[in-house]
Design a protein around this nucleic acid. Sequence first.
DNA 1: ATCGCTGCAAATGGTTTGCATTATG
DNA 2: CATAATGCAAACCATTTGCAGCGAT
Lengths: 175, 175
Amino acid sequence: MNSKKTTASGKKGVSGASVKPPDRERLRRELKSYMDSQGLRSTGQRRLVIDVFFDTREHLTIDELLEIARAHDDRISYATVYRTMKMLASGGIAHELHFGDGPTRFELADDDAHHDHLICTECGAIMEFEEPLIEELQSRVASKYGFEVVDHKHEIYGKCLDPACKRRSSTHTKN
Amino acid sequence: MNSKKTTASGKKGVSGASVKPPDRERLRRELKSYMDSQGLRSTGQRRLVIDVFFDTREHLTIDELLEIARAHDDRISYATVYRTMKMLASGGIAHELHFGDGPTRFELADDDAHHDHLICTECGAIMEFEEPLIEELQSRVASKYGFEVVDHKHEIYGKCLDPACKRRSSTHTKN
DNA sequence: ATCGCTGCAAATGGTTTGCATTATG
DNA sequence: CATAATGCAAACCATTTGCAGCGAT
């Protein structure tokens, strides 16, 4: 496995308003009906990866998910984690996040409350923000250009004021 | 070389306001002083790649740059194009753009007028937009979270209304 | 008993790099 | 002529995939 630093910071709520958590119960239900409808099977490995994904912090990478899953069952493979997360993404249960050049990270879909991200380029902290006005301006821009918005990505890279942000584990650059 | 479809759409100005072009002269000058200050040499290959980059349309990939450069001099290598573009990025003359899962694209830096992108998921058209209000809201969000903004990335994915957008060469998905 | 899933290892695709050679300042 | 740049091929790294065996429905 390609383990690197795997330092994934799990900070939150420096001070500002926080985004409300996704409705895990609903997503579990949606996942079940998605799997049923597609004839997808519920295997031990899948249940494990899914549980790790639902119950651990957000923005984990495949490596991190695998590491945690393996603590419970070390027979699980890389490919299975990839395939499982891909399944969750196809079913609209997970979103894939591509920050800068780092590996893909995953978060629960939480569609009814779109949020975007602030990424600290120094310590790698990832925070979520919601700003309806930006979304509003965005669709105005889009219609000005004759675009029908399907999706968007808005990432703010910077330095956070967290006192613990001294480590320089900078895994997160914009490019 | 990894040539694929290389269909790179060069459309512009569907109707809305357009972003003003970057000041190529100034960038040329900045590049020169950057290269001088770093002891970087001006070779035939570099000059060629740089000219292609400055004088062809924006948002080209390494493949596209290489193809155009080879039309002028077929002895130029992949590695050199990569290295040259990386040099331009380091010197602040070029910006690397990572749309979805596609290959890196490049554009002239044009720092005094930040713009973001609208990407058509159907035909791959890329347009630029400027929206000072979004930038403003953005920094407000950042300071609310105790962030010092260093950079940001704002991409709007959707479908454009261009009549030629019928080809479905969809190279540009968000993830 | 199907047919989807898993693990493994090999393949892929974009990007980077070591090294011997070439060429600029 | 010192040293940066080039070309090539090999290395990298995240991700994907073919396939034989396994296991859920």
